Amino acid sequence: MKIGVYPGSFDPVTNGHLDIIERASKLFDKLIVAVLINSNKSPLFSVEKRLEFLKESCKNIKNVEIASFDGLLIEFAKKNNANTIIKGLRAVSDFEYEFQMALMNRKLNPEIETIFMMTSNKYSYLSSSLVKEVAKFGGCVKGLIPEVVERELYKKV
């Protein structure tokens, strides 16, 4: 069975993330979307809320499972029998950091591959941070994030 892991903070999930999830789900028997619990960051939404957003947003993709993890991604992948890590890229600036992480993960476990997927052009500028900033100042984020997230985002900011 081919199992992929698509990790991220997803604070909040954007339509760019969903683009990667939908496309990656076609490559694997099971795709685990893994929400990182990072104690060094102060997320806008709780892990539970981010999991809820993802479950609602991915409910029609049958082979997608939503989970959370802390610690090393490579250990989470191994524990879940995943053979591939999927990383979404928006621009060249994302590549340098993700390349370093992929090489470290390969050193830690050479049996797990990392693949990079470019987001669709229409989402190449989109990030969770940018969405939060636009919403904070009253800008329109319609069409950039799932509707379930949009309602909650305006309440938070």
Rank of each mutant, 00 (worst) to 15 (best):
I32Y: 07
V33F: 10
A34P: 04
V35L: 06
V35C: 04
L36I: 04
I37K: 13
I37V: 13
I37S: 03
I37H: 05
N38W: 05
S39H: 05
N40A: 14
N40C: 01
K41G: 07
K41C: 08
K41R: 09
L44F: 06
L44D: 00
L44G: 00
L44R: 00
F45G: 01
F45H: 02
F45V: 02
V47D: 02
V47S: 08
E48H: 00
E48Q: 12
K49H: 00
K49M: 07
K49L: 03
R50G: 08
L51Y: 00
L54D: 03
L54Y: 06
K55H: 03
K55F: 00
K55L: 03
K55G: 13
E56G: 00
S57T: 09
S57V: 04
C58N: 04
C58K: 02
K59W: 00
K59C: 08
K59Y: 01
K59N: 12
N60Q: 12
K62A: 14
N63C: 12
N63F: 08
E65K: 04
I66W: 01
A67H: 07
S68K: 15
F69Q: 05
F69K: 02
D70H: 11
L72P: 05
L72S: 06
L72T: 09
L72N: 06
L72G: 06
L73R: 05
I74L: 08
I74W: 07
I74R: 01
F76N: 06
F76P: 11
A77N: 14
K78A: 15
K78G: 00
K79N: 07
N80F: 13
N81D: 13
N81T: 06
N81L: 14
A82M: 13
N83L: 07
N83I: 06
T84C: 15
T84S: 11
I85R: 09
I86M: 04
I86T: 06
G88K: 09
G88R: 13
G88V: 06
R90Q: 09
R90K: 15
V92I: 15
S93I: 07
F95H: 06
F95Q: 05
E96S: 09
E96L: 13
E96V: 11
Y97H: 12
E98N: 14
E98R: 04
E98T: 12
Q100L: 04
M101V: 15
M101L: 15
M101S: 10
A102T: 12
A102W: 08
L103G: 12
M104F: 07
M104T: 15
N105F: 14
R106Q: 13
K107H: 12
K107M: 10
L108V: 11
L108P: 10
N109R: 04
N109I: 03
P110W: 10
P110S: 11
P110A: 08
E111Q: 13
E111I: 01
E111T: 15
E111A: 14
E111V: 01
I112H: 09
E113L: 11
E113H: 09
I115S: 13
F116A: 07
F116P: 10
F116H: 05
T119W: 05
S120P: 00
S120M: 02
S120V: 08
K122M: 10
Y123G: 09
S124A: 15
L126R: 06
L126A: 13
L126Y: 12
L126Q: 03
S127G: 01
S128V: 04
S129C: 03
S129Y: 05
L130T: 14
L130S: 12
K132C: 08
K132I: 11
